[in-house]
Design a protein around this nucleic acid. Sequence first.
RNA 1: GGCGCUUUCGUCUAGCGGCUAGGACACAUGCCUCUCACGCAUGGAACACGGGUUCGAUUCCCGUAGGCGCUACCA
Length: 505
Amino acid sequence: MEKSKVRVRFAPSPTGALHIGGVRTALYNYLFARQHGGELIFRIEDTDSARFVPGAEEYIIESFRWLGIQFDEGVSFGGSHGPYRQSERRHIYRQYVDQLLKEDKAYIAFDTPQELEAKRSEVPNFQYDASTRFQMRNSLTMAPDEVERLIAQGEQYVVRFKIEAGEQVCVHDMIRGEVVVNTSVLDDKVLFKSADQLPTYHLANIVDDHLMEVTHVIRGEEWLPSAPLHVLLYRALGWEDTMPQFAHLPLLLKPDGKGKLSKRDGDRLGFPVFPLEWHDPKTGDVSRGYREDGYLPEAVINFLALLGWNPGTEQEILSLGELVELFDITKCSRAGAKFDYVKGQWFNHEYILRKPDAELTPAFQQILQQNGIHVPDERAQAVVGMMKGRVNFVHELWPLCKFFFVAPEVYDEKTVKKRWKEYSAQQMAELMEVVRTIDDFSIESQEQEVHRWIEAHEYKMGDIMNAWRLTLVGEGKGPGMFDITAFLGKDETLSRMERAIKVLG
RNA sequence: GGCGCUUUCGUCUAGCGGCUAGGACACAUGCCUCUCACGCAUGGAACACGGGUUCGAUUCCCGUAGGCGCUACCA
């Protein structure tokens, strides 16, 4: 049997920023497409004109650009199956709506939202389905000429999918196996609204996936309950033989408490839920983004990939290329995963460790400049090299590294108490003389000279080093002493020591 | 309420009938050391419960309970 080329799609609604769960769905689609030599489509599902948010589409595209997830066709990427924006495909959907109507697989309903709401409040668990549709105002209960008259009058209507009761529908899911649902629990879903002349998600989705020759639908678990409906639609349209395979991914849950991950959780717990910073045009709210928070895109990808899937080995640091090779959609977890953002921070730490210092330097330079520090790249890079191992984010370097660029003004009280002995001033004064005589100010040479002096006077290494550190840093932290002095240079070292002796006595 | 999905350390997970139930994050301790980190080592920590099937169940089946989702003229 000839296998058709794998084609998958990521199809968000432009209703706001891209949620991190959506990013993971897109990532899994990307991995699946790449490992099968297939194609990834970017489609915009904007069939709900009321919820459209300007800028959302651009935001989503920019997010994937930053993350390094590349699409092969779709909105802004071109391709031969366009247009890729559903609002531009009205004319296409209309013909399939008419086809279903003509074949008696769908019907026209005039019930207003108010009427439906009234019905729902008066009848408990009301459902518009095979058992109730004959009590409603639709083309099944009204005379054909009456229907035509109402339409001609401009009465608003919807087209509903006619689902007959009592049939078992089987959905094969690549992750969950067979899922069987009885059509009796399904309602006659609205497929099309006359008000905006647009289909609803369900119809648009099936028509587009068919026309765009999508072979695998990989989406969030929230779609699982409507998957049987989708199967029925493929059948009704006569496309069952080319129906795509389904895979429903587990959801991302709140790190604490209950329910699915929301934007509020990020605000509350202090982590981003959006890839990029998002400025809501309606509320004016600004939400933080992974990019702006200092995450490396590779770290975000790696973290997300392992939330719901793993290679079955003990390797956790995986490049995009390795993920493409190892990913297996059938090995995804089935239960929702609490969003462990602390582990996300650890991934960033690991990627900072592995990243060449030179590539981290621009970000650090930016932080330095925000703090009024202007130094050549070599200086900034030297500090990055010394200190990057101790942070999760580049911006965390500043408080740890400030002393490299700004002499301490105050000396940490606790450290002074512990490290500045009554004889420290005297020793530091002597050390200044030693430092003055060192011509080669390299780490090795200084170390040699200072150690020789310490040994000659039988001083305690700890006494000297800790007091010295206090004079240069202002507290008892930081990298090796000679790394610090070599960076500061002889003049700055001496001047800091002199001031400390004066202040601390 | 109805329907569906789901259930291994605090968290993410490995396991696909017989294991001292493995790894990672987080936490604790120790080592390293001129300090603080990093790093390294060690430790505590889990099969939701009840029935079956089987010589044997974390693993297969059925219940129960918990969790999650859907239940719109939203996606």
